[in-house]
Amino acid sequence: MTEKITRINPEQLHATPGYHHITVVEAGRTAYLAGQCPIGPDGDVVGPGSVLEQVDQVAANALVALAAVNAEPHHVVRSVIYVKSDDRATLAAVWSRLNASALAPAFTTASTLLGVAQLGYSGQLVEVDLTAGLPG
Rank of each mutant, 00 (worst) to 15 (best):
T109L: 00
T90V: 15
N99W: 11
A31G: 05
S122T: 15
S79Y: 09
S85F: 06
N9A: 10
L91W: 06
L66E: 07
S111A: 15
G35K: 01
Y82C: 07
H21Q: 08
S79H: 06
A34Q: 09
D129G: 00
D86S: 15
P38R: 04
P135V: 05
E3Y: 04
L52T: 03
H74A: 12
F107G: 02
A132C: 07
A106D: 03
Y82D: 06
P48S: 01
C37K: 04
E127A: 11
L114Y: 06
E53K: 08
T131C: 09
P73H: 05
V80K: 13
D42E: 14
E11A: 14
K84D: 13
L119T: 03
T2D: 13
A65Y: 02
A62Q: 07
D86A: 15
H20N: 11
I39H: 00
V94E: 01
V76Q: 06
L119R: 01
T109C: 09
I5L: 10
P17W: 13
P135R: 03
A34K: 05
P73S: 05
E127Q: 14
V77I: 14
E26W: 09
G123N: 01
A89S: 12
R29D: 15
A27M: 10
V58Q: 03
S101T: 04
E53F: 00
D86T: 14
E127N: 12
V58N: 02
S101H: 11
V128N: 02
V80P: 01
Q57A: 08
S111M: 10
I22W: 12
E53R: 11
L13A: 14
T6N: 11
A102M: 05
E53L: 07
Y82P: 02
K4D: 12
A100T: 05
L52P: 01
V24Q: 08
D42V: 02
D87T: 14
A110I: 01
A106N: 02
L113V: 07
M1W: 07
L130K: 02
L66Q: 06
N70I: 10
K4Q: 12
V45L: 00
I5R: 05
N99S: 10
V69W: 03
V64Y: 03
I8L: 15
R78W: 12
L113P: 04
I8E: 13
P17I: 07
R78H: 14
G120H: 06
T112H: 15
H21W: 13
G35Q: 03
G18R: 09
L63D: 05
G123V: 01
N61F: 01
G47V: 01
G120S: 10
T131S: 07
N9I: 03
T131L: 05
V76N: 02
R97Q: 10
H14I: 10
G136R: 12
V55W: 00
Q54T: 00
G133A: 14
S85R: 11
L134E: 07
D42G: 08
Q12F: 14
A117K: 13
T108R: 12
E3Q: 14
Q118M: 10
E53C: 02
G123M: 00
V69L: 09
G136V: 08
L98Q: 05
L91S: 10
V83T: 08
S85K: 04
S96C: 10
V58R: 00
D129A: 05
R7Q: 13
L66T: 09
S111Q: 03
V58S: 01
E53N: 04
S85M: 04
G120M: 10
L33M: 10
G136Y: 04
E26L: 09
I81T: 12
G40R: 06
L33T: 13
I39F: 00
V55Q: 00
